[in-house]
Amino acid sequence: MLSAFMGFIEEGDEVIIFEPFFDQYISNIEMPGGKIVYVPLHPPPKGATQNSSAGEWTIDFSELEAAISPKTKMIVLNTPHNPVGKVFSKDELLKIGELCVKNNIIILSDEVYDRLYYVPFTRIATLSPEIESLTLTVGSAGKNFYATGWRVGWLIGPPHLIEYVAAAHTRICYSSVSPLQEAAAVGFEQADANGFWQSAVKEMRGKVDRFNEIWKELDLPFSDPEGGYFVLVNMKKVNLPADYPFPDHVKNRPRDFKLSWFLIQEVGVAAIPPTEFYTDDNAHIGEDWLRFAVCKEDAVLESAKERLRGLKKYISN
C-alpha cells in the first residue's frame, strides 16, 4: 500500500479514507505529501440498545460526494473492514465505483481479509471495465494464513497503474523475500486442494458465535461481523466508577480508552479502543464501543468469557 501511495500521491493531493480506518494508512499517505479527507461510517442507529450487523455501519453518500474535490487523487476502501467487520455490499461498491469513474479517482481496495467472509463478498474491480481500470486490489498472505509477521502482500491492477507502483516499490524495498513468496504460493495451492478456506471460515464463524454468547448473557449489544475476526461491542451500559484512578495517559482520552484500561485492570481482558481508528472530530462515534479479537484458542475465549462475567456489577439495565 505504501508503494501505491508513493507511486501516485504528490504534495497536496487528497486521499479519501473511511473512518474508522487502519491506522497505518495515515503515515503512508502523509509521507509523500498527501492530504487525508475523512468520511465516517455511521454506526447502526440502535447499536447502543440492541444487537446489529456490521453491515448496518453505513456510508452517507452525500457526505462522500461532498468530500470529493478537484484535488482528490485516490480513495481507500477496506472490505472486509477492520475494525468494523463490514463487508461492503455490491450496491455500495457500485456507488463508490461510479463516483470514482465520474471523477477519475484511483481506488485502492484493501482486501486483505478476502478469504474470511460470512456474507456474499464482491471485489469492486469486478463490477465494470471502467471501475477495474481505476482499481488496485491489495492482498496479504499474512492475513490469509494467520501469519501476520510474514508481511508478504501483493497488488492486482491494470498495467497502466501497476507500472507506477512497481517503480515506487523498487525504491522502497528493492525486492521481496523470495522464500516467503514461494511458501505463500505453495500455501495457496495446498489451501485450495485441502479446503482450507472453507474450514477457516467455518472455524472463525464458530469462534465469533461462541464468544458473542457472553454479550447476550451480559445484555451488552454487539455488532455481528460479516467478515474478519473482530467483534465491536457497545459498552454504553457499563458504568465506570467516578473516582477510578485512571493514569494520565488514559484519563484525558475518549471513554473507550477508559473502558479498555478498566477491563484490563479489573477483569483481565484486553480490547482495542476504536477511537484509535478515528480522527478527534469523529471520535465520539466510536467512544462507547470496544473491539475484541476472536482469533484465539477456544480455551482462551472461554477464559475471557468467564472473566467478562465480572462486568455484571458495573452494568446498568
Rank of each mutant, 00 (worst) to 15 (best):
G149P: 01
W150R: 04
W150D: 10
W150H: 05
R151P: 00
V152K: 06
V152G: 05
G153K: 04
G153V: 00
W154L: 12
W154C: 13
W154E: 13
L155C: 04
L155N: 06
I156H: 05
G157Q: 02
G157F: 00
P158H: 10
P159N: 08
H160M: 02
L161W: 02
L161G: 08
I162V: 15
Y164Q: 15
Y164S: 14
Y164P: 03
V165S: 01
A167C: 01
A168L: 02
H169Q: 15
T170R: 15
R171F: 01
R171H: 09
R171D: 07
I172Q: 07
I172E: 07
C173Y: 15
C173W: 11
C173A: 14
Y174I: 11
S175K: 10
S176D: 09
V177K: 06
V177I: 12
S178Q: 10
S178R: 07
S178F: 07
P179N: 04
P179H: 05
P179T: 06
L180M: 08
L180A: 06
L180W: 07
Q181F: 09
Q181W: 09
Q181I: 15
E182W: 08
E182D: 11
A184G: 07
A185T: 12
G187T: 03
G187Q: 04
G187H: 01
F188A: 10
F188Y: 15
E189N: 09
Q190E: 14
Q190L: 15
A191G: 09
A191R: 02
A191P: 04
A191E: 05
A191Y: 02
D192Y: 12
